[in-house]
Structures are given as structure tokens and as C-alpha cells.
Design a protein around this nucleic acid. Structure first.
Lengths: 104, 104
DNA sequence: TTGACATGCAACCATTTAGTTGCCTATTAT
DNA sequence: ATAATAGGCAACTAAATGGTTGCATGTCAA
């Protein structure tokens, strides 16, 4: 779980996921196109995403195809985001109450 | 948005959010209890959370109270998590298809 | 079979990050 | 008034991070 959050913490990596979301199964070179960094830097980002299980790769001859794995993102939604959303209104109400009470 | 992801990327910070989720409005010292780091380290983490707008603080005499702000987490859920969830089944199906097709 | 193409590996560098220590300031209680 | 309490500030350190360059390997096409 920590690996997933860490992987998502970088905007380059999030944009790689976005690109795969737009078109799944791209090669390394395709994913490099238009990015302001070297292929090796992209390779490292993809390795981190793969380590976090956010993408899966398949070698296809001399090409490496990258596929999104949406499961970890879904898990974060389930185990983390929704947990906080559930109490969203309650939290806002308490904050409002505190503010209205002024300084005791 | 980047700040929020970066803030959430650290497990110490996520556990601070968890603590506030369990009981909102805790002081700095309360949030330090039982953690294996100095008060100053916690202060820095809280500053990062506040910078990302994930918490709000109110000075109350010599105490500083910390409150969860669930809005950014909700936004991540809306703008990011759900976006990927929507195409979850589609992605899995495509991956399955690719794998079944074998090489080419 | 040889050259071009797609990717991998490793060493290196600069910056950021997470944490520390030491000291200072403000508020409360006796 | 003064001591204890709650927190703030700043300098420093070690390790992680994001990036680079140079070279090696494997695969495909002419």
C-alpha cells in the first residue's frame, strides 16, 4: 500500500498512468514520446509503477508492452478514500461548530 | 493536487490523518504520543499536511488544535480514483484478450 | 550477416526529504 | 513572579529520489 502511494506521488508517473489509461499496451518508446526526460528516466518510473503493481509488462519480441493494472488504485479508493468520505460531513460540521464556539 | 499526493505518500503522515480521523481536533503533543519520532519531526509532517490543505489548525491559547479537512481526499477520489475505476473492467478484459491472443 | 532498432544495466550527480539537536517564545498555573 | 507547559525556529545530517551518461544486449529487416 505504501508503495502504491509513493508511486502515485510523482506527477511524471501519474501522467504515465494517464497515458496508459488513454491507450493501454504501449511500448517503452511510445511512452517516452513528448516527455522532457531520457528513456532511462522513464524506464525507472515504469519500474516503480510495476513494483507497486500498478502496471504489468509483457515482452513481445524486442518490444515491451505496458498494461495498466487498476486493482491497487481501486484498493486505495476502497480502503482509504471512501473511509474518509464517509465522515466528510461529520468532520465539516464539527469544524464549523468549533469555529462558531470561538475561543471557548 | 501534486502536494496532496506527496503528502499522502508518507505512512507517518497517513497515520497522523488516521489519528485525526479517529479523534478530530487533537493538539500537537497528543498527536506525538506513541510515535517513534521527536515532536519537531511531527511538526514538520503536520506542516506538510497543512500545506496540502489536508488539515486545518486553530491556536487555542498555548495549544494548537488540528482538524481534518476531507476535501482534498475527496477530490482525489473524484478526479483520480473513480476515473480509473470506471474503466477497470474494460482494462482487465483487454489484458485478458491480449494474453489469450498470445504473441501476435 | 550486418546494421538499425528497442530495451537493459551501472555508475554517477544534485536535490529533496525525514529526521535530529539545541535553543527560543508564549501561555498557563501556583 | 516564576516554573512548567506547549509550541516554534534554525542549522545540520543521512538517505532517498529523480535524473543523467555511457555502454551492452537482444531482435528484426534488408
Amino acid at each position: 500500500m505504501d508503495e502504491v502511494f509513493k508511486a502515485l506521488a510523482d506527477s511524471s508517473r501519474r501522467s504515465l498512468l494517464d497515458r496508459l489509461h488513454a491507450r493501454n499496451g504501449q511500448t517503452l518508446n511510445e511512452l517516452c514520446e513528448g516527455l522532457a526526460m531520457t528513456r532511462q528516466a522513464v524506464t525507472k518510473h515504469l519500474a516503480i509503477l510495476e513494483e507497486a503493481n500498478l502496471i504489468t509488462t509483457i515482452r513481445h519480441g524486442r518490444e515491451k508492452l505496458h498494461y495498466l493494472n487498476p486493482v491497487p488504485i481501486h484498493q486505495i479508493g476502497e480502503r482509504w478514500i471512501r473511509k474518509f468520505e464517509r465522515s466528510k460531513l461529520a468532520a465539516l460540521n464539527e469544524l464549523k461548530r468549533q469555529l462558531e464556539n470561538g475561543d471557548e
